[in-house]
Design a protein around this nucleic acid. Structure first.
Lengths: 204, 204
DNA sequence: CGCAGTTACGGCACCAAGTGCAACAAATAT
DNA sequence: ATATTTGTTGCACTTGGTGCCGTAACTGCG
């Protein structure tokens, strides 16, 4: 069962690079994997099944993704670069916590069309125990970006207490907003992020 | 966290209970496991090695702990019961965020003598990737206790945005305080927890 | 004492994730 | 053609974890 939807993966269009062409790409693997996860669930889908459905060897799949848990995360790591850039482009007269909040909003901005798929991905990530566990390692890098920005604004080290706390707290607000977003259809993600921040400021 | 309760594990003292005596107990396993973790590191210590050192079968070890990752967590789950009780015993005229803060302080209170061992345990938990990942699942229950209390005080559901956020934020403050505590010898945990809260209030 | 009932141990087979290695396939460059 | 480069694949092996079932050890009773 071979699904090779991506049109030019194996195209013979001129390539200056020598060596064998890749047999697939991350996008194709993700598509197939998400279909299987939706059908049978994450834990019930073995790596062998994914590899077979993609049409590559199991060993090859582990070249594209370091672990099964990494498959659903997509372009998360690439988004961190953007997050950092956004923060650094923020004017210095914006209060630190607001600068961070705006960056979080930007990081989680979605085009209308992308919402259903993002919902599916986030539902998978936030409700599958193995993926929840794996998320810590992903989020650590995210928190680090926040901590470094806060540290820079206050002239501190990213390892100091306040920057670290800011990283954790920003992440906490984002995650509780996401949980809420998955629970109820009606609210929008930006609204929920705003509410989380406003609620927290009142709470403290 | 009690580390040496046994001594009469296999004692012939009168037992009303029928059936074979357990061959060991959690405390003994923990002692051996921590020794091996300290010697070789967590990932490098196989379950077989732990079982052999304890003197039980691998299969038996998995009866005492559902996974290798659960071994270093000790009495964490039992502590949650106490956390809940502490919160419920807090007078209602204490502001919610302060009530939570006091409970967090209490939860992390340590006797002077227990500090070095707790440090070792926390260092293991917070610096080993596999254990960091596993921690999410443990912390979810902790956050839930906080969220339920906050929800109760505000007449909300524990699934509402503010209680969830409070759970995440409390956890975040505790974790950044712990990271700081492990980094620097001089500060005390309660001081760091206070500083985290004070810093956050100024930040927001 | 012998036997039933109960509780825990332990061996075995098996599954899934992940890794190291070496052979092999496909592409380009000379 | 052939060397070089890059990617794929099969295989053996390690580790954590589970289901099943027989056996060991203990209590209580006739």
């Amino acid at each position: 069962m071979k699904l090779l939807p991506s049109g030019l993966v194996n195209s013979r269009s001129r390539q200056m690079t020598p060596g064998r062409r890749p047999a697939t790409d991350h996008a194709a693997i993700e598509r197939v994997a998400f279909r299987l996860f939706a059908e049978r669930g994450f834990e019930e889908t073995t790596v062998d099944a994914i590899a077979e459905a993609v049409g590559i060897a199991r060993r090859t799949l582990f070249r594209y993704y370091p672990s099964k848990n990494d498959i659903p995360w997509g372009q998360f790591d690439a988004g961190l670069v953007h997050l950092r850039e956004f923060l650094e482009a923020t004017p210095l007269d914006v209060p630190v916590y607001q600068a961070v909040h705006r960056a979080v909003l930007d990081f989680n901005h979605l085009d209308e069309a992308a919402i259903p798929q993002h919902r599916q991905r986030m539902r998978l990530l936030l409700t599958t125990p193995a993926l929840q566990a794996h998320s810590v390692l992903k989020y650590a890098a995210w928190r680090r970006v926040i901590a470094e920005y806060v540290a820079g604004r206050y002239g501190l080290s990213a390892n100091d207490l306040l920057p670290r706390t800011a990283g954790y707290v920003s992440l906490g607000m984002a995650l509780s907003a996401y949980e809420q977003w998955l629970d109820s259809e009606d609210a929008s993600l930006p609204q929920l992020l705003d509410s989380a921040l406003a609620g927290l400021r009142r709470y403290l």
